[in-house]
Amino acid sequence: MNVLHRVGRWIGEHLVLAAGVLVLVYMFVPIAVVMLMSFNDNSKSRNVYAFRDFTWHNWANVCQPDGMCEAVLRSVVIGLSATLVATILGTLAAFALVRHRFLGRSSMNTIIFLPMASPEIVMGSSLLALFVSAGFGGRLGMVTIFIAHVMFCLSFVIVTVKARLAGLDGNLEEAAMDLYASESTTFWRVTFPLVFPGIAAAALLSFSLSFDDFIITNLNAGQTVTFPMYVWGVAQRGIPMQVNVIGTIMFLVALAIVVGNMLATRRKQPA
């Protein structure tokens, strides 16, 4: 009985963790494959889905495939501008929702939730319907993509900043005012520095959402090609290995930012 019990307990302790790690592995297999394929030399083969030989060629000649780097650049430009606008508007809105009472505040909270709960295909086609009925059907491009991206990033920014702001101890601002800081000094010396990590996280999230979006973008892009649309286009005929290089770079940059941030906060608060 005792032995059985202990075996059962051991399994309970470690099986769950092992299963969890297996799930993580499942999540990482495709990324590992992407990394591996970025070193694949498939110049002698028409089959793009098998690893032939190791080469640095893809990394050394990233921009070789026609139009790919232009598409990446376009995605970066859209990502940065949509992030900038969505982060500013979203932060202002988060302050309004947490710090102020106004008419329609609760319906605003619901409307913010909806874009996150709607299928992208529906949002994308709605926006297309609007553009077409407003006579912009023939002028789809960077501007309409930008508009769409700000729209779906806004909700995520508002929710992220709101959470940070709501978790802020109101006593800190009172303490600042008690210590001779005027309203504006209190904001810039205490409120803003404390909310900033939330704003930064929101911006990072915005950029990756924007950079990666395909469904909504594809419906509203017209002839403009973003990086995901480029990948979609070439997927039918066989993708150049350089796409994997871009995927790997994105992953490493994001990982560096997240890990760097984690280490920075840990150094600040080892307790």
């Binding site: 800190l172 303490a175 005012m177 008690d178 210590l179 005027s182």
Partner: peptide, 20 residues
């Protein structure tokens, strides 16, 4: 008077120390 214009200071219940 505004709190920041009073010669009065407070020790808060949860201390309210600026974490940053």
């Amino acid at each position: 008077e505004k709190p920041y214009r009073r010669p009065v200071n407070t020790v808060f219940q949860n201390y309210a120390l600026f974490p940053h």
